[in-house]
């Protein structure tokens, strides 16, 4: 692929010895809204975390915009699952969104006017200006999700990785996030979203990745959402795969022979 946002090559990530992602291999286009779908425990979050460098793959590699992650971190923004943090944290909406301006090298620097402007714009984009100084614990689930998205917007990145941004949000938030995504796409940004609601995938996404430990299918929604692919991913057809994965874990087997030196 000439214009490639994320290239994942033969990626295997294990958890406690068992492969959670297994030989996943794909290239994703630029400037599209891409959905990652698959049943619970199919490795969607693991895929995102491995792409973000939060988990070490046991084999394979990831390239973003044809480069190593460390070289282009500033161009990637990550939106973790809302439940992954403690919202009782003593901080306001503004404080959290300001974290989007933090960089590896500017942690010891004071925030400047540009940072403040960008943060205010990002808060406005997600419609939280009137809640700017409110403590994050006092927000609704949908508002908290929008805080996370505003933080990512404040990073001014080109690639956005979002882990289940539509979970536990109200209908109003869902549609405002959707229009925000369209706006981002029009600006040429690439957005990768983990999604679990099969009803809405064809409306929301331009491109899909269907996952169940292994890559089941990828492509446009029409290409991916075939009966055969969905049965393979959701129909329990991969029980054998799960059994083999647990055998590997039990025997502490290496996933790939080349991981071992003879």
């Amino acid at each position: 692929m000439e214009n490639c946002s994320i290239e994942v090559h033969n990626l295997t990530t294990t958890y406690g010895g068992a492969p959670v992602l297994w030989d996943v291999d794909f290239e994703l286009p630029v400037g599209q809204i891409i959905g990652v779908i698959g049943p619970n425990g199919s490795g969607k979050t693991t895929l995102l975390k491995t792409i973000m460098g939060l988990l070490e793959p046991s084999s394979g590699f990831v390239k973003i915009f044809n480069q190593d992650l460390d070289k282009i971190r500033e161009r990637v923004a990550y939106v973790p699952q809302r439940e992954s943090v403690d919202w009782d944290f003593p901080a306001s909406v503004y404080d959290i969104v300001m974290m989007g301006r933090y960089r590896k090298h500017n942690l010891f620097r004071r925030t400047n006017k540009t940072d403040i402007d960008i943060v205010n714009q990002s808060i406005e984009k997600v419609g939280l200006t009137e809640f700017k100084n409110r403590q994050i614990a006092q927000l609704s689930g949908g508002q908290q999700q929008r805080v996370f998205i505003a933080r990512a917007l404040a990073q001014r990145a080109e690639l956005y990785l979002m882990d289940e941004p539509f979970v536990g949000v109200d209908a109003a938030t869902e549609s405002s996030i959707l229009s925000l995504l369209q706006e981002m796409k029009n600006d040429g940004k690439t957005v990768l979203i983990i999604h679990h609601d099969l009803q809405t995938v064809s409306d929301y996404f331009d491109y899909l990745v269907l996952l169940n430990t292994r890559l089941i299918a990828k492509g446009t929604p029409q290409e991916v959402l075939t009966k055969e692919n969905l049965t393979n991913a959701y129909g329990g057809q991969l029980t054998l795969l799960a059994k083999v994965a647990s055998l590997i874990k039990e025997n502490e087997f290496p996933i790939r022979e080349k991981d071992m030196d003879f």
Binding site: M52, Y78, P80, S84, F89, M99, Y102, R103, R151
Partner: peptide
């Protein structure tokens, strides 16, 4: 607040 996010940066 968010260790994973920090590592992502």
């Amino acid at each position: 607040f968010n260790e994973d996010y920090a590592r992502g940066l």
